[in-house]
């Protein structure tokens, strides 16, 4: 009797859950449609095209299997591009986050007029990559730029900045750090705000040092925010395009030809869409692996509250 009733309830549940699944899908439909058209379809198409030789319009002509991939892995151009990308990530991500963290710690102090500095520190967030790049183009101008003017005032020799293969990548990295700091700063400041002020007061009453507070209270409690900002910055950095296009166009001597720029050139300048697709797939796979590794690493070290 009781068992029968329970079974009946189970049936009711099962009958109910079907429509609710459909209902759920209906709610998701708009985003599923948008994602399909603008994300899933292009992604699949890219993977598909990476196995083909294409004509200038990007139509698949001849199936070549993994040939694009094997060519890429053997080509020095691709390796140079990979190296430039990795170096670029290395230059921008740690320095950018440390700078943003430093500014956020400063701006989190309760001081008079701190709101002004918060605005200043986050101001680059409101600026487009194009506008910021143009500003830096002027700064890096060897003849009239602020960069060389500063070098002169400090008694150092003038530099070629974007024009020399030795300094171009670093110069772009500096401007990128400047552009991204505003965003990282805002996120980190938000994270700092969320830390309970009573914890710091407990620290004050116990009399622990500022450095101990930073190491044992602030950083552990900020770790979820830090993981987030590291992930976003890494992905962003791997995908840098705008400032490269405006500042250096991948030059001089391919020294700033990061992978996304290389993809762009292969696809829309050389019309070698198959190879460009293969590069895009490789980049995607690489970022995916890095992100997964990062989360795995973070699992043990990040303290979610």
């Amino acid at each position: 009797m009781i068992a029968g009733k329970a079974q009946g309830q189970l049936k009711i549940k099962a009958r109910r859950s079907m429509p609710s699944f459909v209902e759920g899908l209906l709610y998701l439909l708009p985003s599923i449609l948008l994602f399909s058209v603008f994300l899933f379809y292009p992604m699949l198409k890219t993977i598909y095209l990476s196995f083909f030789l294409t004509d200038a319009q990007g139509n698949a002509e001849l199936f070549v299997g993994l040939e694009h991939y094997s060519n890429l892995l053997q080509s020095t151009a691709f390796r140079t591009s990979m190296k430039a990308t990795l170096l670029f990530v290395l230059y921008t991500v740690p320095a950018g986050i440390i700078l943003a963290l430093f500014l956020a710690l400063l701006a989190n102090q309760k001081l008079k007029g701190i709101g002004f500095f918060r605005t200043i520190f986050s101001s680059t967030m409101g600026m487009s990559v194009a506008a910021s790049s143009v500003i830096w183009l002027f700064m890096y101008n060897p003849a009239i730029g602020l960069g060389n003017m500063m070098m002169k005032t400090f008694g150092m020799s003038e530099m070629q900045w974007l024009l020399s293969p030795d300094t171009a990548l670093i110069s772009v990295a500096i401007s990128t750090i400047w552009m991204n700091t505003g965003f990282s700063f805002m996120i980190l400041l938000g994270g700092l705000h969320n830390i309970d002020s009573h914890l710091y007061e407990s620290g004050k009453i116990a009399g622990v040092s500022d450095f101990y507070t930073l190491r044992k209270i602030t950083l552990p409690l900020l770790s979820p925010t830090l993981l987030f900002i590291v992930t976003v910055s890494l992905i962003n950095s791997f995908q840098t395009f705008g400032q490269i296009d405006i500042l250096t166009k991948g030059g001089p001597m391919e020294s700033t030809n990061v992978i996304v720029y290389s993809i762009y050139k292969d696809a829309f300048v050389n019309f070698n869409i198959g190879s460009a697709s293969a590069q895009a797939v490789l980049l995607f796979a690489f970022i995916l692996i890095v992100t997964i590794l990062q989360f795995k690493w973070g699992e043990k070290r990040v303290h979610y509250q």
Binding site: D196, H198, L199, E201, S202, K204, I205, A206, G207, K216, I217, P220, L221, H303, Q305
Partner: peptide, 19 residues
Amino acid sequence: RPDERNISMVFQNYALFPH
């Protein structure tokens, strides 16, 4: 300074370190 006053304090929200 607070640490020179030889006090301990218990807050309303306990102020425990979650980590």
